[in-house]
Write a protein that binds this DNA or RNA. Structure first.
Length: 274
DNA sequence: ACCACTACCTGAAGGC
DNA sequence: TGCCTTCAGGTAGTGG
């Protein structure tokens, strides 16, 4: 589920309850998520003060006072839940539980366990962050930057923008949404997206992600829902999961199509996207 | 280097 | 009611 906007919303929500607080207790209810938890996971975190929360691509970072950091990825089904202090109710798949010095309990819940966590030591770079492409919301991300990374690629553009080395943080939903907004067919060969077309796609990626983050921030009270769920809000998708619905572009109305590319669903308008 | 495919794991939804 | 199949928003690893 979580793509860049969801992770951003989760990070903002976690910041509200974690920043400046000490992790008085960290509990792992199992030894592994997608990967084994690192040696000494809970003891390396316990007693440390959280300095700030940040995000890179779809990764969240909990930065600690000793300049180490907890890196987390939500995978497909990962959620962060802030439990009510007076009556914390745990659920199935609450794998990692954090307690802060003001008694707040945060549970990482992940049914499918495609998510993972790791600890980055002071001064080290994490290998999973090393290969990432540009942040789509940074001011260095633009048409020429995108075109340069698509150069020589013969795969469909939809598959190419799912590659985190091309642009970091776009997932299956926003790939379809951005291509629709840019009027580019998901089947178009990636290397033909250059010049004005690449500029349009870079702008569409930025716009779609920005809108999704805004929807998270405005429909959640400061990113934390009353039930404690972070980052999951009502999306308004224009094509994703809308197979057969009428295209909403002025004067179109063609049914939205669904195809499979690299084993993943793609939704698009066969008339508006070329 | 690139690209398609598989594996990882659980749960929800649909067909019968 | 239950059994079976298919699908799900991610990414590392493999082999062509």
């Amino acid at each position: 589920m979580p793509e860049l906007p969801e992770v951003e919303t989760v990070v903002k929500g976690l910041a509200q309850v974690m920043e400046g607080r000490v992790l008085t207790n960290v509990k792992a209810n199992r030894p592994n998520l997608r990967f084994p938890l690192p040696e000494g996971f809970t003891t390396k975190l316990s007693g440390k003060r959280v300095i700030r929360l940040s995000r890179r691509a779809k990764y969240g970072l909990i930065e600690l006072e000793d300049e180490s950091a907890l890196l987390f990825h939500l995978g497909m089904s990962g959620r962060m839940r802030i439990l009510p202090k007076d009556n914390p109710i745990f659920e199935k798949h609450d794998h990692i539980v954090f307690t802060t010095d003001d008694g707040t309990i945060i549970a990482f819940n992940d049914a499918r366990r495609f998510g993972f966590m790791d600890i980055i030591a002071k001064g080290e770079a994490h290998p999973m962050l090393a290969k990432l492409g540009p942040e789509p919301l940074s001011n260095t991300f633009n048409g020429p930057e995108l075109a340069a990374r698509l150069k020589g690629r013969r795969s469909p553009i939809k598959s190419a923008i799912l590659d985190q080395a091309v642009v970091a943080g776009v997932g299956n939903i926003y790939a379809s949404e951005a291509l629709y907004e840019a009027g580019i067919s998901p089947k178009r060969s990636a290397h033909t997206v250059e010049g004005a077309r690449a500029e349009r796609l870079a702008g569409a990626i930025r716009a779609v992600l920005t809108r999704a983050i805004a929807a998270g921030g405005s429909s959640l009270k400061d990113y934390v829902r009353v039930d404690g769920e972070l980052g999951y809000f009502q999306h308004q998708f224009r094509v994703y999961d809308n197979e057969g619905e009428a295209c909403g572009n002025d004067g179109c109305g063609e049914p939205i199509l669904r195809i499979v590319q690299s084993g993943r669903s793609t939704f698009f308008c066969g008339r508006c996207q070329r």
